[in-house]
Design a protein around this nucleic acid. Sequence first.
DNA 1: CTGAAAGCGCTTACAG
DNA 2: CTGAAAGCGCTTACAG
Lengths: 347, 347
Amino acid sequence: MPPAGSSRGTAGGRIRLTDVAERAGVTKSIASRVLNDSPGVSVRRETRRRILQAAEDLGYRAHVGARALAAAEARALALTVPDLTNPTYSRISRGAYQRARERGYALLIAEGAEQESGHSRLPDLVSAGRVDGLLVASAGPRDRIVSQLEERGVPHVFVNRAVPGSGRNVTMDVAAASARAVAHLRRLGHRRIGHIAGPTDIVPARARETGFREACREAGLKSAPVARGPFSEEGGCEATLRFFSRHRDVSALYISTLTQAIGALRGLHSLDLRVPDDVSVVAFDDLPLAAYLDPPLTTIAMPLVQLGEAATDALLEQLAGRPSRDVVVPTEPRVVERSSTSPRSDH
Amino acid sequence: MPPAGSSRGTAGGRIRLTDVAERAGVTKSIASRVLNDSPGVSVRRETRRRILQAAEDLGYRAHVGARALAAAEARALALTVPDLTNPTYSRISRGAYQRARERGYALLIAEGAEQESGHSRLPDLVSAGRVDGLLVASAGPRDRIVSQLEERGVPHVFVNRAVPGSGRNVTMDVAAASARAVAHLRRLGHRRIGHIAGPTDIVPARARETGFREACREAGLKSAPVARGPFSEEGGCEATLRFFSRHRDVSALYISTLTQAIGALRGLHSLDLRVPDDVSVVAFDDLPLAAYLDPPLTTIAMPLVQLGEAATDALLEQLAGRPSRDVVVPTEPRVVERSSTSPRSDH
DNA sequence: CTGAAAGCGCTTACAG
DNA sequence: CTGAAAGCGCTTACAG
């Protein structure tokens, strides 16, 4: 015989809504509505308290599967990133995760390179009722996934990348970041500025590059030389070597990624170019690590956690039936000045 | 009137098992059993093919909520980590995610510092039927969560940390890693070796420290001096300064984390101690970044992706009803020699 | 406003 | 082995 004080329900240990209703002396319907704060419920204050108390006492957790089935919503979101080990994405994840949790949603993370086979299964997460919508940080505008999402009517937003005309883009002001970097260098007296860019098929990389060219043009600089490389230390190093084999006269470098910048520092060193005496360096994106490099790196700090939060908000808006629209995180890119930049007046 | 060729089911666009069964000319029961490869189904090869084909044609995805409700399993796992931006955890996540996907499970990531309020809600993920079990990489042996998990009968394993006696620990051979580091330094002639450790309440940090002390003792070294600091560049830098204010005669340092090592390099520099001429440095854990530091860092490479995979395997074993047991990832820690270590024969 | 009841889409004993 | 049916635990029109 089980102890009289057992707080478990009858069926296999799971506490069900029925158990809560019973203990509170109300019907399932009322219990459900009170627990979910459904509009138009007007029970007595005392009844409400009893229900909440019963749920609390019993440790009731609504079965998400049952709820998903009945209400046709999973209360979960998925974030797709190309690379979990890339600090950019881990910070976006953090913001998205926190905000989702605040809103009562679970967050599922899907890692997969663009165009990877797993990528095409993303919409299935929604078809299978596992999640209600997708935060896509892993696709370019021409990826097949983009049209699939649209065709299948899957709620989604693009994070940190823009698919033109989608009205679903949640981005940061990357153009402003590039402009800020160029302005900072110009203020220091630099007139010949180069850019180490990322691969052209990575949308945010291209945005930085475009922003750089525009900023140079608006500043009246004669040229805006660029070398591209993968988003890795090695990629940054090699691109830098290639860059200087062609553009000897550049006195400052704006680099698309902190990771690339670490490689660039190595490349510069091997070319016997001192930072900042011979070449000033500014990197896009800030991390504590930047302060510990040699020399400590001047960076443009970006609001990546906020980007993740904003993306979640935007997707939730969509799920609430409101029309989707592009959003740009309001926080301005900010120059974090360290020791990799110095004045230059010899032009 | 809808187009005749419409492939959608009748109810709200969702393709249901019924739709598949109907198209294949079989009952729901058979369709379900064939699709799930249930044991003891012996339909004709042709029938099986028809069912699979119908599912394929229709783009059928079983509703996970319905399945969770009926079969009492969510086919999802949750991984809890203290910090998503820590590369250690992102690599564990990658391994866990990949393996989960291979096995047909979704992976949910929960980020939260130890002892945080959100932490106590972890078991709810299981109570609510959202996931079937937990991969816990975020708790110490004395955290309340540990006993809660046990009491509530939640399937779980501990990843990269050991809760003694739990029989649920999935770890790497950290003692071997520390031993390898000490052996490497000894082979180079070092007799006075120090350790920059992490906080004592972080289990894997303590394991490294303990392994270090033991290795020193077994090697017959007189002492095994240690300074502790947080897992950050700053923490590593300050601990290093503190260390050398007390132990001037040490010629080599084994550092608990690559991040701390970056700070240590800075600390050493500010003390006018050259690496490796004055002090050799070995860091636990390898990343591409290590090769680009100044000087390139000698490290102990750890199988973190495999650790994530092994943890998923272990949890899935548990879910299959097999008894849980501690597992240590078989891959041996490996010294990656770069330029931060050099011979020393002056003792 | 509230209660009884239907129904969400599956799986799986159970009887044949 | 297979089919009809019950049931998983919710939400929510619907009738009162």
